[in-house]
Design a protein around this nucleic acid. Structure first.
Lengths: 337, 337
DNA sequence: CCGGTATCTGTAACCGGTTACAAGGTGCGG
DNA sequence: CCGCACCTTGTAACCGGTTACAGATACCGG
C-alpha cells in the first residue's frame, strides 16, 4: 500500500505538497498538481484514514447504541440515522446491548472510536449515560427522557394519546387495559401518562388497568392476550374481556390480535398499538404513527451540528405523531375489513 | 484528555514504560507498575484508539454491507454478526446500499476504515466486489454466489427445496407458481433452481410459472396476490388460482396471505415462504427455516480467522435448512388453524 | 536595477501510540 | 574483585497523515 511519502518521492515533491494537492488542489501550481495526481493514480494511493484521523484529531464516525434490531422499530431508526450520516461522510458504528453483560465496557470502547454517540431508547442505564456525559462525549438521546444538557429527539405522546382515548371513548369504551410496563422504557411511561390524563379529563366514569409485560414484542403480546382471556376482569366472569386494550407498541398489539384471532375472539375487544409499523397497516391496527426513520435522521443532524460546532447549546426536538384509525379499535372491526 | 506522555511525565517514567505497563504488565517491576497504574487512574487516561491503531496498523473493526434493514432478514444477520464481533473485540461498521447512488464510494470509504468486509446478499455489484478483492480487502460473502477465492457462508437450498416440492406434490398440487425474480438475488435463483429440479424429477406432469416481482417485501407480495387473482392461469378462467404459490421469501408470502385473506380467498391456494421469520409462525406459513443469526455469526468467525491469519485458504460454509410445514401449504388450511 | 509582495513549495513538528535496540543496574559465580 | 547474564527501563524511530512557518521564486511598480 502506497503512502504519501512514496507518492512524494516518485513525483519529486515533498509530502506537504502531496497532502495539499489532495485536500486543497487550488493552492498548488497546475503542473505540480498534475504531476502529483498522476503519480498518486499510478501508485493507487489511498490516504490512510488512520493517519489522517490522528492528525485531524477526529474519527469522522459516530456510534449508535440500541437494545436490538429484531423488531422493526430500532432497525428503522438506525436506517434513518445511517442514511443521513452517509450523506455527510460520517461512518456509523453499531452496538447492541440487549442481553449483554459487558454493556459498559462495549459502549465505553465504542465511545473511544467515534466523535459522538446516539443512544436509542433504554439501550443503556442512566449511570453509564452520566459517565459518558462527564467524559464530554457528544450525545444525542433518542426516545429517552432528556437530561437538559444533552441533545435529544423524541416524539410527542400527549396529543395523539389524547386523540386515541377520545376515539375509544366515542366508540363506547369505558374500561381500558394498558398493556406494557411503564418502568421498562420512558417512552412507554409517556404513552401511559397520556392515556391516563385523557381518561381523567373525561366526564364519563372510566377505569384503567395496567397489564405489565416484560418485553415489547409479539411473543409477549400473545402471552398477554392469553392471560386476559383467562382472567376475570372488572368484576366480570373469567373470559370477559375489557372494552379496549391499549398496547404500548404495535408489536405487542399485533401479538394480541393474532392470539385473539386464533381463539376466535377477535372483534370482541378494541385493540390499539403505537408506532405504525409496516405490518400494522395490513393488520388493520389502529395506532399512533411515529416518524421512525425521521427520528434517526434528526438525531444524525443534531449530532452533526454539535460536532461541527455550529451549535453549542442543547436542543430537544419533538416530532409530531398522528392517530391512525383503522379497524382494530372498533368492536367487530373484523367484519368491516 | 490525558495522553501517554502526560502519564509518563507525572509518573516519572518513559512513555515506553507506560505503554508496557498497560499492554504487558508482567515485564515491568511491580512498584513501577503500581506507580504507573495509579497515575493513569488519576489522570483518567484512556489510550487513544487512533494512535494505537496507527502503530499496530490495524483497525480492529469490520464492516457489514447490506441492502437495508427494513425486513427481519438482514437485521437478524447483522445481529448475529455483531454479537460475535463484540465478543472478540472488533467494532462493527455498517453501510446500507438500497436506493443509494454512490454505493461504490461509500463502500470503498468503509473498506479503508476496517480490516475486512462482510457483504450480505446482493448489496453490491459484482464489479465492486472484484475491485475490493483486487485491493486485497479480506471479504466474507453471505448468501451470495461464492467466488472460489473468497470466504463465504450460505444456506443449502436444494434439499429443503426438494422437500418443499415433495410436500406440495403429495398434497395434490400440480401447477405451481414461483413468486420472485431469480435475477434480483442469487439466493432466489438457488431456490427457484431447487424447486424446478424437484418438479422435473417428479413422475407427475406438472407446470411451473414464474411470477416476477421487483422486491421481496410484503407490499410486493400483496401486489402479486392481486395480479394472480385477476389473471387467467393455466388456461382457466380469470380468478382461477394455481395450485400453489411458492414465494421466494416469507415477506412475499405474508403479503400474499394477507391479500388472499382480505379477498376472502385464503385456503384456496397453497402458499409457502422461505426463511421462517418470526411472523411466519403466527401466520401458519409453511416455509424453509434458515438459521439467519447463525449466518451472521459464522461470517464473523470466518472473518476473524482470516484476519488473525489462522487460516489462509478460502472456506465456504453451507448451513443446513429445514422444511417447516404449517397450515398455509394445504388447501383450506385456515380451517385447520 | 531594486525592494516589496504574492505565489508556490519544502522543512519539520505534531497527532498518540508501539517497539527494536541500547544502556543501566543488579546479582551471581568464578 | 571482576565479568557476565538477566532484568528493567529509556531513547528514539516509526506508523501515515496535516499544517505552521520559513524559504524560494517570479512578478510588479518605482
Amino acid at each position: 500500500m502506497a503512502t504519501i511519502r512514496d507518492v512524494a518521492r516518485e513525483a519529486g515533491v515533498s509530502i506537504a505538497t502531496v497532502s495539499r494537492t489532495l485536500r486543497d488542489p487550488d493552492v498548488v501550481k497546475p503542473d505540480t498538481r498534475a504531476k502529483v495526481l498522476a503519480t498518486a493514480e499510478r501508485l493507487a494511493f489511498r490516504p490512510s484514514h488512520l493517519g489522517r484521523q490522528l492528525a485531524e484529531r477526529r474519527h469522522a464516525a459516530a456510534g449508535v447504541v440500541f437494545p436490538d434490531l429484531s423488531g422493526p422499530y430500532y432497525a428503522d431508526v438506525v436506517m434513518g440515522y445511517e442514511s443521513v450520516a452517509a450523506e455527510v461522510g460520517r461512518s456509523v458504528l453499531i452496538c447492541s446491548t440487549r442481553g449483554r453483560a459487558d454493556v459498559e465496557k462495549q459502549v465505553t470502547e465504542m465511545a473511544g472510536r467515534c466523535d459522538g454517540l446516539v443512544v436509542l431508547g433504554p439501550a443503556i442505564p442512566d449511570a453509564l449515560l452520566r459517565d459518558l456525559a462527564r467524559q464530554h462525549v457528544p450525545l444525542v438521546l433518542v426516545a429517552r427522557p432528556t437530561s437538559p444538557e444533552q441533545d435529544s429527539v423524541s416524539t410527542a405522546a400527549t396529543a395523539s394519546g389524547h386523540a386515541l382515548v377520545r376515539h375509544l371513548l366515542e366508540d363506547g369504551a369505558r374500561h381500558l387495559v394498558f398493556v406494557g410496563d411503564p418502568s421498562t422504557s420512558p417512552d412507554v411511561a409517556d404513552r401511559l401518562a397520556a392515556v391516563r390524563q385523557a381518561l381523567e379529563a373525561s366526564p364519563e366514569p372510566t377505569t384503567l388497568t395496567i397489564h405489565p409485560v416484560d418485553d415489547l414484542d409479539e411473543t409477549h403480546g400473545r402471552a398477554a392476550a392469553d392471560a386476559l382471556l383467562a382472567q376475570p376482569t372488572h368484576g366480570g366472569e373469567p373470559g370477559t374481556l375489557p372494552d379496549a386494550l391499549v398496547c404500548a407498541n404495535d408489536e405487542l398489539a399485533l401479538g394480541v390480535l393474532t392470539r385473539l384471532t386464533e381463539a376466535g375472539r377477535d372483534g370482541e375487544v378494541r385493540v390499539t398499538g403505537w408506532d405504525d409499523v409496516m405490518a400494522a397497516r395490513w393488520a388493520g391496527l389502529t395506532t399512533v404513527r411515529q416518524p421512525v426513520r425521521e427520528l434517526g435522521a434528526t438525531a444524525a443532524r443534531l449530532l452533526e451540528e454539535r460536532l461541527a460546532g455550529t451549535r453549542t447549546t442543547p436542543r430537544h426536538e419533538v416530532l409530531e405523531t398522528e392517530l391512525v384509525v383503522r379497524t382494530s379499535s372498533t368492536l367487530l372491526g373484523k367484519d368491516h375489513a
